[in-house]
């Protein structure tokens, strides 16, 4: 009688332990998953910020370099293309084709922006203007933010994946069906675009 009671109690305690452990594992997995999903949203936010800066840049630059109409128009065109790419990516996040489209238009925008900044080197008045100084700081910062958002996404996706794949949380991840997060990579065929992109001359 008393031994069976003890066995029942022991089993009950063990079951309760497993139950609470499962809850804890599930919650921690959700926490890291939300973190990497939020990091993904950051990339969009920062790309948009970058697009929003470009009209300011054009406005500032226009006063000084009216002769460079072509370059300016190329920037405006590349910006609206990249914006369209971003909108498409927002509508279907994770769709590989749309993501590839976005990275292509991003690369083009980078390249024409690089050209614009290179041309601006030839205008000392422009370079010395307070506006340009601040814009250049904002552009640098936004570039960094885009890069850091990607990097932050990859870092947090890695933490999530490690948690998902290591013992003992992998058991809970298996039970609740947590899927692997895929890291952001630049596809091989697009790599040349990124490598060529920023051409700033001195």
């Amino acid at each position: 009688m008393s031994t069976s009671l003890i066995i029942v109690i022991v089993i009950g305690v063990l079951l309760a332990g497993v139950f609470f452990w499962l809850i804890a594992s599930y919650n921690s997995l959700v926490a890291v998953r939300n973190r990497y999903q939020n990091a993904f949203a950051q990339i969009d936010v920062q790309l948009q910020r970058r697009f929003d800066l470009i009209p300011n840049l054009i406005e500032t630059v226009k006063k000084y370099m009216s002769h460079e109409r072509e370059t300016l128009e190329a920037v405006v065109a590349a910006r609206s293309m990249a914006q369209a790419g971003l909108n498409a990516a927002k509508a279907q996040p994770g769709n590989p084709e749309v993501m590839a489209q976005l990275s292509t238009s991003e690369g083009q925008l980078n390249s024409v922006l690089g050209r614009l900044l290179a041309v601006a080197e030839g205008y000392p008045d422009l370079k010395a203007s307070q506006n340009m100084m601040q814009l250049s700081e904002e552009l640098t910062s936004t570039e960094n933010k885009v890069a850091f958002a990607r990097q932050g996404f990859n870092d947090s996706a890695m933490i999530y994946n490690t948690k998902r794949e290591t013992f003992p949380t992998m058991i809970a991840a298996g039970i609740f069906g947590f899927k692997q997060a895929s890291l952001l990579e630049i596809p091989v065929e697009k790599r040349h675009l990124v490598q060529e992109a920023p051409k700033v001359q001195f």
Partner: peptide
């Protein structure tokens, strides 16, 4: 003010990088 703006920007960048 420029240096403070840059300071803010840099902090925002790292906030993004570190989550």
């Amino acid at each position: 003010e420029f240096t403070l703006r840059r300071y803010r920007n840099v902090v925002e960048e790292i906030a993004i990088a570190s989550g």
